[in-house]
Amino acid sequence: MTLLEVQGLDVHHGQLHAVRDFSLAVDAGQTVAVIGANGAGKSTLMRAIAGSHSPTRGSITINGADVTRMPAHQRMRAGICLVPEGRRLFKSLTVEENLDTGAYRAAAGPWNVDAVMELFPWMRERANQNSASLSGGQQQAVAIGRALIGNPKILLIDELSLGLAPAVVKQMYALLPDIVASGTAVLVVEQDVSQALAAADTVHCLLEGRDVLSGKPADLSRARIEQAYFGLTSASGQTVGKGH
């Protein structure tokens, strides 16, 4: 059965139609990427799946159970956990306390504070430091750790590489196979196309809230992805994604 299924999702910010008729499926053990330029609606989509923002139409199911109207704080139990854009660590909590918040409503599973500290040994030395004193990459690691400790069925990551040095981005992406191997599917959102293409089993390209191109990375040519990403006119003379 499909782990996460999003069907015909519409999400609005007031009058603004930020996500339009979007569908996506993630199976257990898969890594799926959604790419798109700034403002394409990626964060809005992720927040709708995580329950922070109510969709106006469409459905979201986890293992067949409908969670479309479930409040955000219950979705952790349903198996969804989002690493929000910009990390959003709790600024008055230490590194260890930040990780521990993930355990508050955690499901049973392989991840706990110790397992995360095993993965990132530097966290042990900094356990009692304020999270604001960390570098961007370290904060991203804590944010991912915090989410993993909940043992979600699917981990959503909004802009894994945002604001990180290329070498750190590489390290972050190197983690994904370990996470998937532990039994958690990953849905990652990116502006950085090349990393996402290399890591994902399936990729969706979002343009002005629409899914304008999707498939396996190997089946998609670089040129088509660029067209979809920037909304450029395609060879056949149609404007990708602009048709109504």
């Binding site: 329950g51 952790m76 909590l93 918040t101």
Partner: peptide
């Protein structure tokens, strides 16, 4: 600190 983010961890 951040109720919105706290809701993400339940």
């Amino acid at each position: 600190d951040d109720a919105d983010t706290a809701s993400l961890v339940g």
